[in-house]
Design a protein around this nucleic acid. Structure first.
Lengths: 204, 204, 204, 204
DNA sequence: GATGAATGAGACTTCATTCAT
DNA sequence: AATGAATGAAGTCTCATTCAT
């Protein structure tokens, strides 16, 4: 029986996917369970997505886009670096808390690597722009070589993502707090080093 | 049949697993293909392993143990830090080149996270000991807080692992060379060299 | 909505059915594709037909009726046998060219056999009447036994139908020309012409 | 549990296929029912056949090969034409009685036409050779043009096949007797033409 | 009457695992 | 211990049909 609900079915399916794929992994997640979770018939999934793989990719992409949107917003907003960066971090880890199990699935299949790498590149390009804004250019990424600097950035972002993604569910909240604190420490407070105005640190 | 034959079969199965799981991922890899690759019948797999999951875990653990063994050897060997560290890095990335796709599979299932995290902890503990040996205490991990320092170490190791693991096969060699160079740069040459205040090092 | 529109929709559905069933066969043809081809919504099909099977039967019957109508017209029209017969043959094969794949579908299901056999009987009865008109009684069906003669007629008509129906699409035109030529040869020119003993006809 | 039965499983599956495909048609026949009928598990079907389509094709081809084998045997056996021909006809219609519903399915899908046409060609080539052996060259196929003669032969064989295939099950025995009688009459008794030794009929 | 999104039963197929040999 | 044919549970996906709008 057709429902009046039209546009939010896709959203509900994405949400349900996030939960199912997250809890059970791509292979173990069942399309019919996702459908039930979304409150639709199994066949309805195929009205909105080509197949299970498409559903997964769209779900993942949805998460990336959400964060990228916030990042872009921050980039286009004038203001104090530390405040903007901190807001982004808070937003990002809130998002990650909701979608973290999906990160694992993203790396599962060889044919999903492109999707992952493209989004990582996009994310890091945005972060790079944000970091460049930073009043000081010190800190752990204050390498002279821009390429190397970007490389470290990607490794660090990847490490953070998987540090959270690989956390046991029961440890998730603690893990996120730890990572968040570490990131803020590493990117915000450590440079401009405390009570030190020397830029020597920055050129390292 | 002699015991040695058995051992051979198990080893061949581990090797075949590494290749199949690596090339196709856990879900897509078929036990029968692994058996064929190892030159045994499908049923024989179950003489040496409980089930597919057990086979995967043993295969993964085998890889971890291999690297950890080398790390321990390095730790117990006296000598120049830089040389020992570089040797370990070379060894580690050679190993990673062979098993890299397995890294992705490790993160696939929630019930494998423990396995992964335990080995990561063990690895980082060893690395920490190695880094402590380092004559200087500068560099990107030269944080005062030991816990934070370990945290950054884990994130960086994770980032490196997945940076390689997420590379497209065709890009693998280039990727490994890049990461290796970056790591050596970051851990060997970049730190305020001992008793040297020259910034020449910094220009890398 | 006016009655004429309805009729138009039904006709368009029959036409679209002919094409879809023809191109893809009964099982592979999709009701929704037929609907799209006819320019209506899938649900509308069920306003004009009970179900897919009914749609198929009506489509098939439509084709039979079309030919049967022409046959009756020929039967009721006075004139030279050869001319009338040739016109019928031309008409029949033109029709067959358009609907030929449907012939295969007609034989697909046990519960469609009645439909097929009844129409075949009706067709052959008409052909028999037409052939009886023929001034001479020679030719390949010049059997003394009327029942046997009818039997041969049915077999030949069936053979012709399926010879065309089983042609690869790319071979269809050639096939139809061949069958048409053979039929004309067999039924028109070959029979010991009336009151003529000349063998010239025989060289065919 | 593995059974001792090894080679006849394939045969049992072919037999079961013949029955199921025959009774229900290709689309409606279920692989699991065929398996049950053959006394094996559903999955076992895929040990012997690629998929449902392959199972169908092999089943059909099995029938063709059976008849073709008998035809070849007859061709290689010296002896009186009429006796040999009659034996072949009897054999052929016995076979057809067992497999007749499959004939319909053979024509069902466009991608099966090749299979059908190739076997029809092979069959007619054999029949042509057999008919050439015939002491007299009269009868309904006594056309001077070999190509046309072959054409009529194919149409007639097709017509016979489908005349039987399209019979209602309850009518099958009667139908087969009728066709058999008609064929014998047409090919055996009608030529040597009654009380006529003229060869003019043969060149027609 | 028309629409077309939603339904949901059902089939094919896979493959980890078993066990008679 | 090894084999590998057989097993059978289970999941994805299709599509004829319905019915609220």
């Amino acid at each position: 029986m057709p429902r009046s609900l039209d546009k939010d079915k896709r959203t509900r399916l994405i949400t349900a996917s996030l939960e199912e794929f997250g809890e059970r992994g791509y292979a173990a997640a069942r399309v019919s369970d996702i459908a039930r979770r979304a409150g639709v018939a199994p066949g309805t999934v195929y009205t909105y997505f080509d197949d299970k793989e498409d559903l997964f990719r769209c779900t993942v992409q949805h998460g990336w886009d959400e964060f990228q949107g916030e990042l872009n917003r921050v980039l286009e907003t004038p203001g104090n670096f530390n405040q903007r960066f901190e807001a982004l971090i808070d937003y990002g880890f809130d998002l990650l808390r909701r979608v973290y199990p999906i990160v694992r699935g993203m790396a599962d299949e060889a044919n999903r690597l492109d999707l992952f790498n493209k989004n990582l590149d996009r994310l890091c390009a945005g972060l790079e722009r944000l970091l460049e804004i930073r009043p000081d250019s010190g800190g752990i990424f204050a390498t002279g070589d821009p390429a190397l600097r970007m490389y470290f950035l990607k490794i660090t972002v990847l490490g953070i993502l998987f540090k959270v993604a690989l956390a046991q569910p029961s440890e998730l909240d603690r893990e996120i707090e730890e990572v968040k604190a570490a990131v803020k420490q590493g990117f915000l407070y450590t440079h401009p080093p405390p009570h030190a105005a020397e830029g020597e640190d920055g050129r390292r």
